[in-house]
Write a protein that binds this DNA or RNA. Sequence first.
DNA 1: GCATCGGATTTTTTT
DNA 2: AATCCGATGC
Length: 729
Amino acid sequence: MEDFLDLLNPQQQAAVAAPAGPTLVLAGPGSGKTRVLTYRIAYLIGAMNVPAYHIMAVTFTNKAAKEMGARVEKLLGPQASGIWLGTFHGLCGRILRREADLLPVDSNFVIFDADDQENLMKQIVKEANLDEKLYRPASVLDAISAAKNELIGPEDYPVKNFRDEQLRRFYMRYQQMLVSNNAMDFDDMLMYTHGILENYPVVRDTYGHKFEHILVDEFQDTNLAQYAILKNLASLHRNLYVVGDEDQSIYRWRGADYRNLQRFTADFKDTRTILLEQNYRSTQTILDGAMAVIDRNANRTRKKLFTEAKAGEKISLVVADDDRQEAEIVAAAVQAGISKAKLNPADFAIMYRTNAQSRLLEEAFRREGIAYRLVGAQRFYGRREVRDLIGFLRLIYNPKDEVSLRRVINLPPRGIGEKTVEKLQKVARAREMSMGEVLLHLNAGDDGLAEELGKEGIRLGFFGKLLADWREAANKNTVSILFDRVVEDLGYQAYIQDKSEEGQDRWENVLELRGVTTEYDDTGLGAFLEAMSLVADQDTLPETVDAPTMLTLHAAKGLEFEQVFITGLDEFLLPHSRSRDDEEALAEERRLLYVGITRARKKLTLTRAQRRRSPYGSYEATMPSRFLDDLPSALLSGSPRGLPNRYNTSRRPEGPSRWNSPAFMPARRVVYEAPATRFKPGMQVKHPSYGRGVVKTSKAEHGDETVEVYFEGVGLKCLVASLARLEQL
DNA sequence: GCATCGGATTTTTTT
DNA sequence: AATCCGATGC
């Protein structure tokens, strides 16, 4: 069982086989951190005979959790099942559903995401008759979130001025509203969990006993609430095993506090600290570049990253005339890498500071005929039609959810406008019920409701009937059957598909969502909704597609690629203008770049543009990022030869760049060649909602593939390969 | 109640 | 440039 230790270096071995007790593993990028964590779990179960269900492992993303689960299972087989493995929010959700008796909401509470929160807060601000400009819902919510992350409740919200007082009131009202909606937000999940552990010693002891060993990944990105939860859970066994790297802390704005590392060693005086410095990922050149950038940050333990790999290629620096050209250069370079250097498309990643930057890149890749994967950015779950349908399902599951009710009650338009909703709300408030409950009672023919609602009552009654029927259907059927029923009853297809060509896309999205529902047929509506709230787009990327990845620097954490492009190395973009006046924020921008650089295995390219379209209007001249100053020129190549290295001299943009000098002008394709298609005529395929079929034609278009398929019992359908989950049989 | 038009308004990262 | 909000007209 212990043979696998042989595969590790001495530090890693020490980390994996560390004795019980508080342990801190400081792991530089690429030092085999995930490996250490998975082996540690395997070691505990396999060598120390700790039952899997006595172990809790917390990761930062669902994707990381999934990966870790898969790896552990590979090492241990069925012995591994029963581990509590997931994100903080996922695990807290699990505890909260179990202990819902202790909460002000019942066990089928729903989780409000940013969009729901904003809708609710808008209502609250409006209700208070205050200027929405002065109290922007998003910023009010930011303040509340910050408080929650520090475990500050509405009663304790510090008031120093009038605005604070107002914020405190909003906070109180917001919490009340959440409870009456039978809902909570992300931060509440942590706060409530902490509250339960803190106030109910019995519960704390139950979980404290259960979790003999607690392992935490990305510890530098935990916030105070999360740390407090961990401390409670580990109070009995004290086997808290945390892995982190202060240099990779990039979520301060979300309440993450890398000082938790210091708190940890202060709270657990006997902590054993293990340092992992050897890097197994990148070339020495890339590591040197990364260290040059990060060493400028104060208040950190300086680490010396080293590798046994060669120096490798230099870091390329590309200066484009404008942002459009920047995108084109990247696309062309990727194309060259694929066709000339014969690299796999999936070996490339293109990173940027803000999601908005992806657009030009996408366009350039399309023009170049390269398929790509885009991480995050409202790709799927942010779509209107997807959100709407989830809104219906949420209302069915939890009729008290008034945010969802307001969203869907008039979809498609059925004559229930603002006035009618207001009336419904008034009646509901008078009876101390939620609007959804009133609708259900109305349908059941309860007391004077129909009279009270008057003529509006008829239309509301229709909707109440729909809702009641759906609820009944939900009790008897699987999620996918319920989904079909709702879509059918609404005439949803006709509603979204009739008009434009966009309608087709939107319908595709509905079918896609329908496909997802089938995955929850065994677990039920509640599990489906919870997953919809907690599983971000990033976690659902199909790994199988062999295509370059576009993603934000934040989303890049924990990943690695052969070749990495980091775009937009302009002042005000990276570092972002919003962090300009704040030392701490600036340091975090630096860490962000550090994270990006250290994702690269073989080759790193940094790009910037001398002119860039501002988020608002026209083009503006840019200045090179200050971080470029810190890269020793010995590590660089490809900066415009014959031009002074402007990064070390002047900050002002000057003259047109020489990006198209042969030195670093990537070979550009002159003739468009249709890329090979994945699906061929005659091929047997399977689709999540259409079932089995045979490919009729397939052609490459705009870097994607359009497939025509005859489906059994369905007929001919035209699908976009990257969107439709077509599988070859 | 609903659709449309025009003017105003956008501040980054995400569990 | 794109979305949101409010006013207008039906």
